[in-house]
């Protein structure tokens, strides 16, 4: 099921203006992503941990999220040290461990985990609805925002429709294996999901139009940038400058 486990909370970061948080997240993750020295990603990871602690993120979902991201990192650790080229440090059976490969894998590990932590602490602490509204305040096209919010609105719906069809297939003793029958069944399941969701989304849309929907999803709480948010923005700018200048001094 699709949920937003981090969006509920009353930490300082939860209460901050999402527009400021998104700006900060983009700035900080960009600086970390493009750095070529190890110092910035390490500092970024520390900053990410601090922000995650500051937002008091629930640990269970956070571990799960980090685990999923690190599966790909694991693949890199399996391949890069053996194939990375550069100087061979030590022979490992018929293979050589390459210094360059290990450096690259280490750099990516720090970058990825730091960025995921920062992104989670800063963007997942607002609901998608709030994020949509603040993206509009950041002057993204209205059509795109409408698409974002409508897509989000239909996510749960489509997943429900799919699960319902999946259950009814299971009731009819559908079991999966690697054969054409399975793939045909999945194809029809997806096709039926699309048709049902399409019909349902059209009905919802008509009902919304009848109730005066004019392309805006109103928010109960008004969003505004408060003085405290400007301080937060200054904090992000300072962190960004620090991260960017770190390799010069260290």
């Amino acid at each position: 099921m699709i949920s937003e486990p981090f969006a509920i909370g009353d930490s300082l970061l939860h209460r901050a203006d999402p527009a400021v948080k998104i700006t900060g997240a983009l700035l900080l993750t960009l600086i970390i992503a493009v750095s070529s020295s190890l110092a910035t990603p390490v500092a970024g990871l520390v900053l990410g941990l601090m922000l995650a602690a500051g937002a008091r993120l629930p640990l269970g979902p956070l571990y799960k999220r980090l685990l999923a991201v690190n599966l790909f990192i694991l693949l890199l650790w399996i391949t890069l040290p053996l194939t990375g080229g550069g100087e061979a440090i030590t022979p490992l059976g018929p293979l050589d461990l390459s210094s360059r490969g290990i450096e690259l894998a280490l750099l990516i590990t720090f970058k990825t985990n730091g960025i995921v932590l920062i992104l989670t602490a800063l963007t997942a602490t607002s609901s998608i609805l709030e994020i949509g509204h603040s993206l509009e305040r950041l002057h993204l096209p209205h059509k795109l925002i409408l698409l974002l919010l409508t897509t989000y609105r239909y996510l749960g719906l489509i997943e429900q429709e799919y699960q319902r069809l999946r259950r009814s297939a299971a009731l009819r003793c559908f079991s999966t294996s690697t054969n054409l029958h399975t793939y045909r069944t999945y194809g029809y399941l997806i096709g039926m999901t699309l048709i049902r969701s399409y019909d349902r989304s059209r009905r919802i849309h008509k009902a919304m139009l009848m109730r005066g929907f004019q392309g805006h999803f109103p928010l109960l709480a008004l969003q505004a940038t408060r003085p405290a948010d400007l301080l937060l923005l200054l904090f992000f700018l300072a962190c960004g400058t620090g991260l960017a200048l770190l390799p010069v001094f260290w």
Binding site: L147, Y154, T193, R202
Partner: peptide
């Protein structure tokens, strides 16, 4: 993309999202 087609597009956009949650056996 005109405004009348946003609903259908959004529906397929979320279908694309949900598809990544569907695991088929191999």
């Amino acid at each position: 993309l005109d405004y009348d087609h946003i609903i259908g597009t959004a529906m397929l956009s979320s279908a694309f999202f949900v598809a990544s949650l569907i695991h088929v056996p191999l």
